[in-house]
Design a binder for these strands. Sequence first.
DNA 1: TGCCAGGCCGGGT
DNA 2: ACCCGGCATGGC
Length: 209
Amino acid sequence: MAVHGPQNWWPGKTRFEVIVGAILTQNTAWTNVQRAITALRREKLLTVKALEGVSLRKLAGLIRPSGYFRQKARKLKEFVRYLRLQHDGSLTKMFRTPTATLREQLLAVHGIGPETADSVLLYAGKHAVFVVDAYTRRILERHRLVRGTESYDDIRGLFEKSLPANRQLFNEYHALIVHAGKHFCHAKAPLCSTCALRQHLPEIPEDAR
DNA sequence: TGCCAGGCCGGGT
DNA sequence: ACCCGGCATGGC
């Protein structure tokens, strides 16, 4: 890519916008998320208070282009509700929570699963967690580095145990994986040259990690 | 035109 | 503990 090490990679300027983007991009193309974010910005809704104040109905209409818009409108509401109840509506307070504790809290919020929680922790909160996404899995599988039956936490653990716990590194690593994935590792198996070579490697033994 | 995109939830085995 | 259907729009 043109620039290696764009520290703090993630489309989105403020912490809150990063979180909104993390929820809206669930199983959705970024171009669609952009439209939704643009609409929210136009309506001045990219703040905790503003989002708390808007109706579920209006919110859903604005984020329509991002898909699953009713589901996601609810998810956004659930998050700001959690933030208000647990952290007085303050992201600064929220992110002062120890990583493991905060991760559990986020996972308990309706609509926030492991990838979204970790994206929020890493990209909005600068906590050192490795984000595993569809691209990460697919690339590892195509390269026969995993068998494909591993859980989210298995794969996250793989990276976190193999790399120094440095949030800048995790940030950049994930950014590069997404970049590579978008260009070279699509779901519909047009194997890139590297993948094709790997196809000829032996299977991973049963007892291997 | 159908398949895909930086998931997650709820109900059923 | 897995497995599956539902959720929805826009691009190629």
